[in-house]
């Protein structure tokens, strides 16, 4: 399957059988749970648990863009703020934006810019807020995946959902969806985000060391995984918005029985010729 010759002896992120520290194989995702519509005030929201990551996303808008000089007379701005809670990492993170979160906010904003029908809402802003509550590597992918569901929950018109995932290299093996230890001690990480319906890559970053072949392997793992995550995103939205017959009946009681007689059926043939039931019966009797 993969060469596992140059694994550092002291730290085996993946063993001879191709099993990782958390028991996953190279092409396995961590468990992912997605919930849509989890906040009251936001226009749209979503919550994602992805391995040890816990991420909330909220969407406001389209609403008046602030500061006003940023307004675009032709389209809506898509502005994302990615933020990590001080308690989301083992050493407390100083609150507020640092350089890393400014960069992540920028690339996530850009990832959504071509997907939202921004030209329908001139001078406005679609504001996306991502809060990382608990971090375990891959927070930008989890945040973007959550934000995408939150945008749909807010009813913001989009060409498609955006789905994100990362692949990297640990112990010389290209693996899907690195966790914190794998990210810290691994050799490379390559987060991406895709528009699943068209295959457009709207976010792509990489750091570490990958040969061109390894990069292609990583991308193929990520692309395959995003199809599965896409299904989970859609499922979260379906669970939020599709009601069972019982629920519909509970919310709106059945219509009262009609008291009046149905009006007589028109004999005029409009589209499909109406069946003459009497004639049908006669035919059957005649044939018997």
């Amino acid at each position: 399957m993969v060469d596992i010759e140059h694994i550092p002896k002291e730290l085996k992120l993946i063993d001879e059988k191709g099993v990782r520290l958390d028991g996953r194989r190279h092409d396995e995702l961590r468990p992912i749970r997605i919930e849509a519509g989890v906040l009251r005030r936001a226009d749209g929201s979503a919550y994602v648990e992805w391995g040890g990551n816990k991420v909330l996303a909220a969407v406001y808008g389209p609403r008046e863009a602030h500061p006003r000089h940023l307004q675009d007379p032709a389209r809506a701005l898509v502005q994302c703020r990615y933020n990590m809670a001080p308690f989301s990492v083992s050493d407390r993170k100083r609150p507020g934006p640092d350089r890393r979160s400014v960069e992540i906010s920028k690339v996530i904003s850009e990832a959504f810019a071509s997907v939202v029908f921004a030209e329908q809402f001139p001078r406005t802003s679609v504001d996306i807020f991502i809060e990382v509550l608990q971090a375990d590597a891959g927070t930008r992918c989890a945040g973007l995946t959550a934000a995408s569901v939150a945008l749909a929950d807010a009813g913001v018109p989009m060409r498609d959902l955006v789905t994100s995932c990362a692949s990297g290299k640990i112990g010389g093996v290209v693996c899907l969806d690195l966790n914190k230890d794998e990210d810290n001690f691994g050799e490379a990480d390559c987060p991406m985000a895709i528009v699943p319906r068209t295959g457009e890559l709207v976010l792509l970053q990489m750091d570490g060391h990958l040969t061109y072949d390894e990069f292609q392997k990583a991308m193929e793992l990520s692309i395959a995984a995003t199809q599965r995550i896409y299904e989970m995103q859609r499922d979260a939205l379906r669970r939020r918005y599709s009601l069972s017959i019982d629920e519909i009946m509970k919310e709106s009681p059945a219509a009262p029985p009609r008291e009046t007689e149905l009006p007589e059926m028109s004999t005029q043939i409009v589209g499909e010729p109406e069946l003459d039931f009497d004639a049908l019966d006669e035919d059957r009797e005649g044939g018997a």
Binding site: V107, L203, L204, Q205, D207, H209, L210, T211, Y212, F215
Partner: peptide
């Protein structure tokens, strides 16, 4: 020729 960093913008 190995890839060390990438950034899409």
């Amino acid at each position: 020729g190995d890839i060390r960093a990438m950034q899409k913008g």
